[in-house]
């Protein structure tokens, strides 16, 4: 399953055509978010890096449990599952990951932020007392 990040200018149609042009004997299905490909494991393994090359930080790929067009998981038949809603949300947030990929590519330092600590009871009492006055 290949998802195009919302920030990419690539369309599912262009993506599908590019995969076709690679000439591998794999099935390709254009979807509203990108494309699904299916076929011999070795061929998929060869195709994936080339597909990524098309827009490296804005194309995201994972394996999918059900074959293309499988009715058992078809949204039209079974309604959306948490898996679908999750993809909806992950797709929305792909630009954050894109930013991360670009940052590591350019060697940008990304230090972790210190964790927010909870207010101490003493401090809370102090605030409450001040509010009282």
């Amino acid at each position: 399953m290949i998802m195009i990040a919302p920030t990419s200018e690539l369309t599912p149609d262009q993506l599908a055509r590019f995969i076709h042009s690679l000439g591998y004997e794999i099935s390709i299905k254009e979807t509203c978010y990108g494309a699904n490909i299916e076929g011999d494991k070795d061929l998929i393994a060869k195709a994936v890096p080339k597909i990524r090359g098309l827009d490296p930080n804005r194309l995201f790929i994972k394996v999918r449990a059900y074959p293309i067009g499988d009715e058992r998981r078809c949204r039209a038949h079974h309604g959306s599952r948490p898996g679908f809603n999750q993809l909806e949300k992950e797709w929305m947030d792909l630009p954050f990951i894109e930013a991360g990929l670009c940052a590591v590519e350019s060697g940008e330092e990304c230090p972790e932020k210190p964790k927010r600590k909870r207010l101490s009871v003493e401090k809370l009492i102090q605030i409450a007392e001040e509010e009282n006055i």
């Binding site: 995201f60 790929i61 994972k62 394996v63 449990a65 059900y66 074959p67 499988d70 999750q86």
Partner: peptide
């Protein structure tokens, strides 16, 4: 989460084999 697109992609992108629920279920179905 074992079904995350983001984590699956990153693990594969950085050269490892992700163990995912989708992969396991694919064998099953």
């Amino acid at each position: 989460p074992p079904n995350s697109l983001i984590l699956y992609d990153l693990v594969e992108r950085f050269g490892h084999q992700p163990l995912s629920v989708m992969g396991t279920l694919r064998e099953r179905v």
